[in-house]
């Protein structure tokens, strides 16, 4: 709730008048109303970070006497009388610069190439990074790992040398959420013969005690059991096996 007890604010996005819930960000409100704002580092499941600058929009207010400014929509909370433009010339130019720079950073990323192509950028105007992987430094992996509670991934170094890594591999539970949540597939993960390989470490997977299907890493199971307060006996069978057993239980309950 805002100071005056209201739960919504009246604002304008691209000329549309919108009642937005207090505390929401411009990006959330825009997307909830079907207005597209591109982003790279935003993930609804983790704290917003404002790193990629792609979601920048232009804001003004009636009493700003014509002054405007560019803000990251993923972080900026909605306000009464806020006038947002997601498609002004400045906003589009900002997106072009961001994508041009990203294309220099990750020239081989299909995701970035496709996004850049939408804004007419087919080749970067900057010098391409040598031996580039596809990491765009969005840090979704860092924040996902933090949300899970493992805190294994971090950004290391500073400036242009900054990179993402696992400084202490013992903290990694091998759940693979970082790899699956990465928007540019920059974290390699393989699973073969019951062994998951991620962050240069092999995790022997726990198998379903009935069907033998791989379920997850021992560290992952222990972590989730501890976090949720559920006994480890909840984590001993594959979903397929459990479903079949539930069907049998249902039949038994019904037929006596």
């Amino acid at each position: 709730m805002s100071d005056n007890g209201k739960t919504t604010v009246r604002m304008t996005i691209d000329g549309r008048s919108i009642d937005a819930p207090v505390g929401a960000t411009i990006l959330e409100v825009a997307r909830a109303n079907g207005i597209d704002i591109p982003s790279l580092c935003y993930h609804p499941g983790v704290e917003a970070f404002g790193a990629c600058r792609l979601c920048v929009v232009e804001i003004t207010k009636p009493n700003w006497e014509g002054w405007k400014k560019l803000v990251t929509s993923c972080l900026y909370p909605v306000e009464e009388e806020l006038i947002v433009s997601t498609r002004s010339e400045e906003v589009i130019e900002n997106r072009r610069v961001v994508l041009d720079l990203q294309l220099a950073r990750v020239p081989d990323s299909d995701v970035i190439r496709q996004m850049a192509a939408k804004y007419g950028i087919h080749d970067t105007s900057y010098e391409k990074r040598k031996d580039a992987d596809t990491c765009i430094m969005c840090t979704i992996c860092v924040r996902v790992c933090e949300a899970i509670g493992a805190n294994a991934i971090a950004t290391l170094s500073r400036g242009p040398e900054k990179y993402v890594d696992v400084p202490n591999i013992d903290a990694c539970i091998g759940c693979g959420a970082c790899a699956l949540s990465c928007p540019t597939d920059a974290i390699p993960m393989t699973e073969e013969n019951g062994v998951r390989h991620i962050w240069d470490k092999d995790f022997e997977l726990v198998r379903c005690e009935v069907s033998g299907e791989p379920i997850g890493t021992p560290e992952q199971i222990k972590h989730f059991a501890e976090k949720s307060g559920l006994p480890e006996s909840y984590f001993t069978k594959s979903d397929r096996q459990r479903k079949k057993e539930t069907a049998a239980d249902l039949a038994r309950v019904m037929l006596g």
């Binding site: 993930h43 759940c175 949720s228 984590f235 979903d239 459990r242």
Partner: peptide
């Protein structure tokens, strides 16, 4: 919802194998 970060904890935890 779209807050899912794909940790798959739910798929292992469901005692009825329904996720």
């Amino acid at each position: 919802n779209d807050k899912c970060i794909l940790c798959k904890a739910c798929t292992i935890a469901c005692p009825f194998g329904n996720i």
